[in-house]
Simulated scan of single mutants.
Amino acid sequence: MTVRVNGKVVTPNGVIWQGCVELADDRITAVAEYPSVRDGHWIVPGFVDMHTHGGGGHTFTTGDPGQARDAAAFHLRHGTTTLLASLVSSPFELMRDATAAYRPLVREGVLAGVHFEGPYLSTARCGAQNPEFLRDPSTDELTELVELGAGAVRMVTIAPERDGALDAVRLLTAAGVVVAVGHTDATYEQTRAAVAAGASVGTHLFNGMRPVHHREPGPVVALLGAPNVICELVADGVHLHDGTLAFATSTAGPERCALVTDAMAAAGMPDGEYELGGQTVTVADGVARLTRDGAIAGSTLTMDAALRQAVAAGIPMPDAVRMVATTPARAIGLADRVGALQVGMRADLVVLDDDLNVVRVMRAGSWVE
């Protein structure tokens, strides 16, 4: 049975059509332009969030599969049809247990994979990462996790200045795992060395990084200037000023900038106290900060809100759509399956009203309740 969804379709080449998306079963079968269609709704691809720690009161950081299902369901209602479960710095035992617990969810399609944001990070730039668990990269640990995950481990964030970092980058990339540079005090040269070794993502660019200086440009300039690196941007108006968001996008282009939420369990929940990686987080006016020192502790963002923030910052709608779907899908090696309204792709789409609020979400050809 063929289903047709009409509206203003944002196509993979950045053109807005008055037309429709047709699908059968779980696949897109046609994307067509029909100027006579005058439905006011936007039809955009399902969002791809490559960096999220939880939401709706549920977390990915403890390795609990029930919590993971509920967190994924929360973000699905906000249009995120593909996501990685991001953990924070933790003991190896938790990393191993979470990999084993989430492997069935990856096979089932609830998760697109696991992202370890740490523990191989800089103490000086740890942000809300628990300093108790930070350590140098271990190729033995990483080999065990990759083998245990059997494809579930999709991305690891590493600070390239740590001892053994480049060996870890080479090992992971050889195994097909995406390596991101983040929470780092690295120099420009150290960052470029990591990119040369295979790193291809910048974890929440600007945040948790040595700041730019005109005599020591550091990791931000190195990552923005690397043509094969995709830069994550947290578009919540807290992590980045809108001017910085627009600057990064104009510098690297929407094909190299991916919007992420970096959301924690407090996303979609009331202000109050929460937990992240064994540390207390206080959420006030929707902003999450470590209770002990006020460091930004993830976000309460959802991908639909990130899209609205980017458009309000002056990023054209087709570019912003690329940044919430097509670019992150490419960053984590899923561009042949999701992230665009294109024939043969999985039928993931989001219907938005003129204010870019979510009206309906479809995943794999089925409307989400």
Results as ranks from 00 to 15, higher is better:
1 M>P: 15
4 R>K: 07
4 R>I: 02
11 T>D: 10
12 P>R: 09
13 N>Q: 10
22 E>P: 06
23 L>H: 14
26 D>A: 14
27 R>F: 07
28 I>G: 07
30 A>L: 08
47 F>G: 02
54 G>K: 15
57 G>C: 04
59 T>P: 03
60 F>Y: 15
61 T>Y: 01
66 G>N: 06
68 A>S: 14
70 D>Q: 15
71 A>C: 11
73 A>S: 14
75 H>F: 08
79 G>M: 01
83 L>K: 02
86 S>H: 09
95 M>W: 10
96 R>K: 04
100 A>D: 12
100 A>H: 10
103 R>C: 03
104 P>T: 07
104 P>D: 12
105 L>K: 13
112 A>I: 07
112 A>P: 09
113 G>H: 13
114 V>G: 07
116 F>Y: 14
116 F>A: 13
118 G>N: 12
118 G>A: 10
119 P>W: 04
120 Y>D: 14
123 T>F: 12
125 R>H: 12
138 S>D: 10
139 T>E: 04
141 E>I: 03
142 L>W: 01
147 E>F: 01
148 L>Q: 13
154 R>N: 08
157 T>E: 04
162 R>C: 12
168 A>E: 01
171 L>C: 03
174 A>V: 05
174 A>W: 02
175 A>N: 14
176 G>A: 00
177 V>N: 07
180 A>H: 09
181 V>G: 06
183 H>E: 12
184 T>H: 10
193 A>F: 03
194 A>G: 15
198 G>W: 00
204 H>T: 09
205 L>F: 06
206 F>H: 10
211 P>D: 04
219 P>W: 10
221 V>H: 03
223 L>E: 07
227 P>N: 06
227 P>T: 08
231 C>H: 01
234 V>Y: 06
239 H>Y: 04
239 H>C: 06
240 L>P: 01
245 L>S: 02
247 F>N: 00
248 A>D: 06
250 S>W: 05
251 T>Q: 08
255 E>S: 14
260 V>M: 03
275 E>A: 02
276 L>F: 10
279 Q>H: 05
282 T>L: 12
285 D>L: 06
285 D>E: 13
285 D>H: 13
287 V>S: 01
288 A>L: 09
289 R>P: 05
290 L>V: 10
290 L>D: 12
293 D>E: 06
294 G>H: 02
295 A>Q: 13
297 A>V: 11
303 M>C: 04
304 D>P: 08
306 A>C: 10
306 A>I: 11
306 A>Q: 12
308 R>H: 11
308 R>L: 05
313 A>V: 00
317 M>A: 05
319 D>C: 11
321 V>Q: 03
326 T>P: 00
331 A>H: 01
337 R>L: 09
338 V>T: 07
341 L>T: 05
342 Q>H: 14
343 V>Y: 09
345 M>E: 05
345 M>R: 14
347 A>I: 02
350 V>S: 08
353 D>A: 11
354 D>V: 02
355 D>A: 15
357 N>V: 00
363 R>S: 08
365 G>M: 06
365 G>I: 04
366 S>I: 03
369 E>V: 00
